[in-house]
């Protein structure tokens, strides 16, 4: 596993050499007396997709929220492109967040805006010099990429859960991020819609060559879209590796998880 020490002084140069884009080191997080994360360390390089698996309530979503700075860790560090995000001012954190796309578990589309306005939201706020027509073209292109070009004028409440996730994905890609964080992209979807989302994530991953973390409890989905898998239990990483390594593992929890997946 890559460690923080491997990150060189110049992040871009370092990443060319294989240094991690996302580096999480000894992360601890508690809510009251409940220790959700208990010393998590992970690293993801450019072009790589890491699937974080585990039972419900093991802190998978909390891990993503810590990486994007929506929660603050009790201890440990999160580094994005070599830059620690702890203690950053909101503006500095904003600059880092512009390089990150986040798909929420329930898509979290703005319910008072249309599909088109949802996808245009990041562009309206961060690409103020971009001409209106160019923004509109970009939104159409993003929606076309996720197969939602016909739903421009629809409200989020008028489209299905799977479609909402597609729109959420288009919104996450609006600023051309080099990091993509996906929280349960296939949860609550029927098998066909889930497979479509998996194919879509895989296609986007191949086209945009991002560093991605996918949180899921769907082993099939994880196998399809990830290069590596990390299995969490009680706030710790039990095992990290490719699917074959998980299959060969003698750890009881890993065997049990694979048996029931």
């Amino acid at each position: 596993m890559d460690t923080i020490e491997q990150i060189a002084t110049d992040p871009a140069e370092a990443e060319q050499g294989g240094a991690p884009v996302i580096a999480v080191e000894d992360l601890h997080k508690s809510f009251g007396s409940q220790h959700v994360l208990d010393g998590i360390s992970l690293a993801v390089k450019r072009g790589e997709t890491l699937a974080v698996l585990g039972r419900s309530g093991t802190g998978k979503s909390v891990l993503l929220r810590l990486i994007i700075g929506l929660e603050t860790p009790d201890s440990g560090s999160v580094r994005i492109h070599g830059q620690a995000i702890a203690g950053l001012a909101l503006d500095q954190l904003g600059e880092i967040r512009k390089k990150m796309g986040f798909l929420f578990q329930h898509a979290a589309l703005y319910d008072s805006l249309t599909v088109e306005q949802n996808v245009a939201f990041p562009l309206q706020h961060h690409k103020k010099n971009m001409p209106k027509s160019e923004k509109a073209d970009r939104v159409r292109q993003l929606l076309a990429e996720v197969g939602m070009e016909d739903a421009l004028a629809k409200m989020p409440s008028d489209i299905s859960g799977g479609m909402q996730k597609r729109v959420g994905l288009a919104r996450a890609l609006a600023l051309e991020p080099d990091i993509l964080l996906l929280d349960e992209p296939t949860a609550g979807l029927d098998p066909i819609s889930a497979a479509e989302i998996d194919d879509l994530v895989l296609k986007l991953q191949q086209e945009h060559h991002m560093a991605s973390i996918v949180v899921t409890h769907d082993l099939h989905s994880a196998k399809t879209i990830a290069n590596r898998l990390a299995l969490l239990n009680r706030g710790k990483v039990v095992i990290e590796g490719d699917f074959e390594e998980l299959q060969k593992s003698d750890i009881e929890f890993v065997k049990e998880f694979l048996k029931h997946s």
Partner: peptide, 17 residues
């Protein structure tokens, strides 16, 4: 309602205050 449906988190994640 925006808070419990994570819309406010989504705004923050989009680097908007």
């Amino acid at each position: 309602s925006m808070k419990v449906t994570e819309q406010i988190d989504a705004i923050e994640a989009s680097a908007v205050n």
